[in-house]
């Protein structure tokens, strides 16, 4: 295809992505260096018979004029990045000097909102991803051994946790683990503690969110692996059997190596998706126990006073985070591509 024809075919989608994906990135980066103008204050002195009083009022015209002249706001450089709500260099340095061990340093780090959100996001991402891959693989192997009729039925029901709206899925589970819900009741009966409330305890809430994460994404891994299982070379499997390989050895040395590229694919997609975890925290109403980078931005964006600069700064940091997360994969793709073209 000629460059010219390609250009016209590709133009609409390129325009959409430039306008609504590339430009917003530029926009968040710009916003993160500016903060809204403070109101211009004028101090007037009223002198009466009983002495002088100073009075400060907002100069509406001057404020509006400044806002008009510099619509982006006041340039503050890296100030928002280093303030207490974000990277908090000052507080981190102080915590480092004052803490007597790594443990207490980590403790004071968790009191800073950004690091708290970062720790939860990373924990969620790196626990959910391997577990959902293992669960998905197990389901795939199990379903693959079923009778043909049952397979279809199992695939249908297995898809549900993934297809359903994340917020709704989280809500459904959250109602069930509520201390008045059926699972909550069951759990408190199980540990014979009538006052057990999952939603009141931070560690239990984290476990709950991670379980939700695995539950909702395992079907994706399942479907991908299930499709992969259909293409396992039967000859290799048969020769392994003739050589006396046990069932486990067949899986370990024939099936798993065959599925390895799919594992990379699932891991890549899931790392991306788990890193943006947001809806489960809202669905479980767990904001008091767990904040992720996304909920951190959301709470800046919603509410009466929209703190756009702060949200933009966290967004830039999140984008840097996801870039670091994806670099290994991108380098690998680049190498594969080069290997293919030579």
């Amino acid at each position: 295809m000629k460059h010219r024809t390609f250009f016209w075919f590709f133009l609409p989608t390129a325009a959409a992505m430039l306008l609504f994906i590339a430009l917003p990135i530029v926009s968040v980066i710009t916003q993160s260096f500016f903060t809204p103008h403070e109101a211009v204050l004028i101090e007037t002195e009223n002198c009466g018979p009983f002495g002088c009083t100073k009075e400060t009022t907002i100069d509406q015209d001057a404020t509006a004029a400044i806002r008009e002249a510099q619509p982006l706001g006041r340039f503050v450089g890296w100030q928002i990045y280093t303030d207490r709500g974000h990277l908090a260099f000052g507080e981190v340095g102080e915590a480092w000097r004052n803490s007597d061990g790594l443990r207490s340093f980590a403790g004071s780090l968790m009191n800073l909102p950004f690091y708290d959100a970062l720790v939860f996001t990373l924990t969620y991402t790196f626990i959910c991803t391997p577990f959902l891959i293992i669960l998905g693989f197990t389901i795939a192997v199990a379903v693959n051994s079923l009778h043909r009729r049952l397979k279809g039925l199992m695939i249908f029901f297995s898809l549900l946790p993934m297809i359903v709206t994340p917020l709704i899925g989280a809500l459904v589970l959250s109602w069930m683990v509520d201390s008045r819900g059926v699972l909550g009741n069951f759990l408190s009966w199980l540990v014979s503690d009538p006052d057990l409330s999952v939603k009141a305890s931070t560690p239990l809430m984290w476990v709950c969110l991670i379980v939700y994460g695995i539950w909702s994404s395992a079907p994706f891994a399942f479907v991908v692996f299930y499709a992969g299982l259909q293409t396992v070379p039967q000859d290799t499997l048969e020769s392994a059997q003739i050589d006396g390989a046990t069932r486990w050895q067949q899986i370990r040395f024939v099936v798993i190596p065959h599925l390895a590229p799919l594992v990379t694919f699932v891991a890549l997609i899931q790392l991306m998706d788990n890193f943006r975890v947001l809806e489960p925290i809202l669905g479980f109403g767990a904001q008091a126990h767990a904040q992720s980078l996304s909920t951190f931005i959301l709470s800046d964006l919603s509410g009466e006073t929209r703190q756009l600069s702060s949200a933009a700064t966290t967004s830039v940091l999140t984008i840097i985070g996801i870039a670091i997360l994806l670099t290994p994969v991108l380098i690998r793709t680049w190498r594969d591509f080069n290997a293919k073209s030579h």
Binding site: P24, L293, L301, R306, T318, L330
Partner: peptide
Amino acid sequence: LLIIALMFRALPQITLVSGYLP
């Protein structure tokens, strides 16, 4: 172009939304 699309796919939507709002 495909790699750029993949990177765009990786961005959390909320970071984009904070770019749109102003």
